[in-house]
C-alpha cells in the first residue's frame, strides 16, 4: 500500500498511484471518489453541504457545487483526463431520528442528491454507490486499482 493521504471533514485531496486517499467518519457527509483508470490519478472529497447558495465561500471543499469542480481541476493538474473520470460515492446517512424531523435532518439525502446531480451534469458516470442508512463510514481510495473500501463499526466492510 502506498503513501496514505488523509482527507479531513470539508476537505479534499488528489493523488497518483500508489497513493491511498482516506477519509474517516462520514455520517451525513458524502465522500466522493473520482478516478482516471489510465493515468491512475484519484481524487477524494469529504462534502458537508449540498450548495453554497450564494454565501461567501471561505472553504470550497465544504459544498458539493464548489468542491467537485475544484477536485476535477486538481486531478487535471496531475494529468487526469476529465472525460475518463468515474465516480464512487459513500455516506449520506441519517445518524439521528428525532420524533419531529426537520428539513435539516435530511441533510445526508440532500448531500447525496446534490453530488449525483453535479456528476450527471458534468458527464461523470457513477459506477458504485453506498449511501443512506443510519451508520458512519470510513472510506479509502486506492489509486493503484481504483478500488474504494468502505468500513463501518457495525455494518461490515465493502469493496466497491
Amino acid at each position: 500500500m502506498g503513501e496514505v493521504r488523509r482527507v479531513g471533514m470539508a476537505d479534499l485531496a488528489v493523488g497518483k498511484e500508489p497513493v491511498v486517499l482516506v477519509t474517516i467518519g462520514l455520517g451525513s457527509c458524502v465522500g466522493v471518489a473520482l478516478y482516471d483508470d489510465q493515468t491512475k490519478v484519484g481524487g477524494l472529497a469529504h462534502i458537508m453541504l449540498p450548495e453554497a447558495n450564494g454565501l461567501a465561500v471561505t472553504n470550497p471543499a465544504k459544498f458539493a457545487d464548489t468542491a467537485l469542480p475544484l477536485l476535477v481541476k486538481k486531478m487535471e493538474e496531475l494529468g487526469a483526463n476529465p472525460r475518463r473520470l468515474t465516480a464512487k460515492i459513500a455516506g449520506g446517512a441519517q445518524m439521528f431520528r428525532l420524533a419531529q424531523p426537520t428539513e435539516m435532518m435530511r441533510i445526508g439525502e440532500r448531500n447525496t442528491e446534490a453530488v449525483l446531480n453535479w456528476l450527471r451534469a458534468a458527464g461523470i458516470r457513477v459506477v458504485a454507490q453506498d449511501t443512506g442508512g443510519s451508520w458512519g463510514r470510513t472510506i479509502e481510495l486506492d489509486t493503484s486499482t481504483g478500488e474504494l473500501r468502505v468500513k463501518t463499526i457495525a455494518h461490515g466492510e465493502k469493496r466497491l
Binding site: 462520514l26 455520517g27 451525513s28 458537508m48 439521528f96
Partner: peptide, 12 residues
Amino acid sequence: DMAGAVLDYVLA
C-alpha cells in the same frame, strides 16, 4: 458510532 459521523450532522 464514529465521532466524525455522529458530529457531522451538527457541524453541517
